[in-house]
Design a protein around this nucleic acid. Sequence first.
DNA 1: TATACCATGTAACAAGTTACATGATTTA
DNA 2: TAAATCATGTAACTTGTTACATGGTATA
Lengths: 185, 185
Amino acid sequence: MSLPHAILTALLEKPSSGLELTRRFDKSIGYFWSATHQQIYRELGRLEAEGSIRALASQQPARGQKKRYEVLPAGRAELARWTAASQDPKPLRDTLLLRLRAAAVVGTAGIGEDLRRHLDLHRRQLAEYEEIQERDFPPGKDAPADRLQHLVLRAGIDLETFWTGWLTHALEEFERIPAEGSTTL
Amino acid sequence: MSLPHAILTALLEKPSSGLELTRRFDKSIGYFWSATHQQIYRELGRLEAEGSIRALASQQPARGQKKRYEVLPAGRAELARWTAASQDPKPLRDTLLLRLRAAAVVGTAGIGEDLRRHLDLHRRQLAEYEEIQERDFPPGKDAPADRLQHLVLRAGIDLETFWTGWLTHALEEFERIPAEGSTTL
DNA sequence: TATACCATGTAACAAGTTACATGATTTA
DNA sequence: TAAATCATGTAACTTGTTACATGGTATA
């Protein structure tokens, strides 16, 4: 039950059409809550039906016509309620770790390469975050309103730092391990 | 498409019944791939139907009777194929970060408490992992077969270390921020 | 006037969640 | 023998994914 709230947040930051939201879910909010355009349109329909948002009255709702939405008071209230409510952290779900565990049984063939590929991807993501930090949060002048945004960005940076560190360590280990053969226990 | 492979891995490590698997998915494998008993029974049914696993012939398949499964060659082959195949890392999805972003718009009421609660939970998880490390991987004598298991555990430790660090930092920030009021932009 | 792209959708499916049902075994 | 618990399931629902459809607008 997070996608509607992600959309409400995005729309409060800036009223948008479905496609504009889709674009924003490819970066920005999408860095920690991604969604496809199909999900977004389905959810926009629901939110409009329940009275949380409405289409701005400018354009008529024809197919292929841009429709821009804004948040109604009910939507804002629901978002505030959800934000304040306590939630448990979701348990980790990571395929790469699962594959390593499987590799201990069926052999490590192919995984080393993929570790290197992941390391590269995480390095790129880290670089992207650091660029954003330099651009949007130059040292010394954090406006208090930006503190929360910066905090979120730092989570991203720290997380990618963890991954690059761990993957580097993992690759070192791999060079020391008996290697590719099927360690069929 | 990871649950079947998680189950195959668990069954290769040790043939088990549905409930035994459910227990193991609450710890061990469950630390990075959790599943409920409903998911597990459904998946066991599929895996058996497609010939990847079979019930050990000891007990007859009555309801409420323990049924223990083992992996067939087809299942092992499929697991090896999946393990070797390259996969993209899944984009991050985190509710807490989303809530912080929402809080920048609708106010930070209630979030501070939950940050503290999460910090506590992550500290406990970290302590649990470190206990396992001391027990199962005492320094100095890593058998090469255990290296992969240890690597996975270390990912868990590093990840929880990241969370506790970031949450501590976040709480410090929160004490400096204008506080609970609705920063309604 | 084709062709590409913009914008909004539909449909079918897969995976995960929540609530409940039922038979067998232990134990009070 | 009643209650609790073990063990295996069913059903309904929500969320996320993949593939495709359709109308409008720009441009070669």
